[in-house]
Nucleic acid binder design. Sequence first.
DNA 1: GATGAATGAGTGTTCATTCAT
DNA 2: AATGAATGAACACTCATTCAT
Lengths: 229, 229, 229, 229
Amino acid sequence: MRSPVATVAEAAGAAPRPAERRDPARTRAQILEAALVEFAQKGLDGARVDQIAARAGANKRMLYHYFGNKEDLFLAVLERTYDDIRGREAALHLEDMAPVAGMRRLVEFSFGYYTRNPYFISLLNSENLHRARHLRRSARIRQMHSPLVHMIGDLLRRGQAAGVFRRDVDPVQLYISIAGMGYFYFSNVHTLSTIFAADLATPEACARRAAHIVEVVLGYLRPIDWEGG
Amino acid sequence: MRSPVATVAEAAGAAPRPAERRDPARTRAQILEAALVEFAQKGLDGARVDQIAARAGANKRMLYHYFGNKEDLFLAVLERTYDDIRGREAALHLEDMAPVAGMRRLVEFSFGYYTRNPYFISLLNSENLHRARHLRRSARIRQMHSPLVHMIGDLLRRGQAAGVFRRDVDPVQLYISIAGMGYFYFSNVHTLSTIFAADLATPEACARRAAHIVEVVLGYLRPIDWEGG
Amino acid sequence: MRSPVATVAEAAGAAPRPAERRDPARTRAQILEAALVEFAQKGLDGARVDQIAARAGANKRMLYHYFGNKEDLFLAVLERTYDDIRGREAALHLEDMAPVAGMRRLVEFSFGYYTRNPYFISLLNSENLHRARHLRRSARIRQMHSPLVHMIGDLLRRGQAAGVFRRDVDPVQLYISIAGMGYFYFSNVHTLSTIFAADLATPEACARRAAHIVEVVLGYLRPIDWEGG
Amino acid sequence: MRSPVATVAEAAGAAPRPAERRDPARTRAQILEAALVEFAQKGLDGARVDQIAARAGANKRMLYHYFGNKEDLFLAVLERTYDDIRGREAALHLEDMAPVAGMRRLVEFSFGYYTRNPYFISLLNSENLHRARHLRRSARIRQMHSPLVHMIGDLLRRGQAAGVFRRDVDPVQLYISIAGMGYFYFSNVHTLSTIFAADLATPEACARRAAHIVEVVLGYLRPIDWEGG
DNA sequence: GATGAATGAGTGTTCATTCAT
DNA sequence: AATGAATGAACACTCATTCAT
């Protein structure tokens, strides 16, 4: 079960409300949210424990009380993040949708998740800079396979059966392509915006990008002529 | 102009040869190479000035003498890196190739660059974590537009004229997609390998990935039925 | 009055039995015993209040409730310890023994106390490192003179009268010598064992040491030739 | 070879003279001396790195530069201390002295060393509290056997041959007894002074103590009647 | 040009103690 | 009586940078 908070990003952005004293669960949650923001904005190495505590409105000691140390706190943030995305992915119900519509929805969901959770990408980049050191320690995360791969496989099978999708498509590769076309756009939004002298973060630019990715995926998936022949 | 060194990666991997004393250019180059490795492996915040100097076999003071400070050194590394990739991109001559073959070659070059320059991606991630702060200061980099966008535009035009490529394709979007499908794979190779319990860094896995990206791009670019009709 | 516990060492070693809730005396005693062990093993500065509470199976707050603070707890441990040794010393009844046998017994008791109360020495070392700061605050301890000095004086008088002990022996100095020859052996058992590359803590080594000290004391106390003449 | 400094204590007590900047050897030595004082006064756990640096008039960073960390600094102090005492012991030349005079001199030297080096005992106590952890790491110290044991053996042999010393005396045990009778006096000077309500640290008290120890040792070593018979 | 010693602000972490229940 | 969360000062240690030679 995921927390009732709408998204990780919303939770993180929420100002720590004054909070009556002595609410351990609340303190813990506020530290976790503050850590999410700090780690995402500064990276694991650039993040400051003091800053996290300050942002959480908590005593620094509590951070160590609840999470052990900076690295374990980072892992906790990572777990919470994977928890969130996996939960939202699982909530996608594409079984009843037509293959093309389902694939479109999946791509748009994937892209949309990045826009609604701007901290997600930075967190993953930090984890990869550290060679997935924390993630590898977490049996919990390792078990959370993305349901998207299975969903893609199902859509492909149904689409191929209906003659609307090409054959010989690896669902894992396609999953990575869908993710990558959106991820890279946001991950490198600052350098790309600088190089192209244009703000790629505007809603309009994002919408154009999303449309393009859908086009690429659906264009690629079109049946091959001789297959139909 | 790029340095005579074969590739950034090779330069970085090269052991600093004993070097006769008092060779300013050599000292400077060794510091730059050591910095590339350190920044790529640890990120801007995780990198240690001492380590760079040690790896370069140089005195720490020289680092400040030649590059001012850590941030400026990072910028120098960044400029050298863009210098390299832009140079190699420019060396791609696709004008004489058939559109499909040219596009295939472009995609393979893009993907291949990541494999030959493993530090490139990490460096860009660091720069984006810091909101392109250094890149924005560098007029030099800002002027280095990737010739790939223009090359893609040219291929598209020629392919469309020949009826082998679809219409209504934005070269910038396509450029980002091609880059993203490869970039994300390497950028997140550690988390993806962990999640999928497979080593995505093997030559075989990379080859499969490259082939898939080519398939996606060329599959997407196929003309649309009614367009041809 | 001493506590009913057999010895300080035994008390310390005793596992805190499950203990029904709400047994103030028991809680207090367990904290005191846990503190004895922790202070002896780590010293006053190295001891951790958390560790004492954990070892006592008590809440940390109780520690402050019963003993005020860490320093006062240390003093309480010290008082309990002096309480114990003074009580045992007083239980030595040498009045009816022959001087030589009495002196032998006194020396053996003194040495044996260290072996049976391994925490005693470490505690005294801590107190001396802190210049007897706590002990000086304790009127109770200051009044507990060791009955051993008086016993030595009595044995000396009786032995001199019987011609078996030399004259001009200061009971306080002899008391310190007897204590010192054993104390130093245990206090420095780790460095001495390392330097001499032998384990001085074995029962055999201790027995040899005790025999030697008896020899030194009795050898020293032999009447001087011309005295008897 | 020992440093030309008269004694460890003197060196430690010396005020760090202003010292022209940029004198690495001097800086290192001052840190070592300041550490000796701090560790002796507060113990390993009570000692503060900041305080050592301040006392040395050095930057804290230098302490880590030269000695690695607090524990290694403690070991360095320990090595310096053993270096000093072993050197002074070796400088005792008792070969040409008559056995009784030589033994007296040895006992007085041993006791005197404690008075001239008040930090020595506290340091050893700290090391023993930590179970000789540092000493065991130091091959250098482990090889420094005290020449006193050999000297005692030699004196015993010569004295026994001359009929002035008893037989069956273990030189190691006697060494420990001589050391212990002085060590304990100083190690526990604060508690003993408190208990006996007298300042045992005065020169007069020390002189009386030294005389007593000589009496005990020489008294013990007197030949046994029947041995001479 | 080149070196290595020196610096001070900060970094993650720990601790004895107190507050609220 | 008893609990566990909360606190702020301090702790060992690190870092990018500069000084003196």
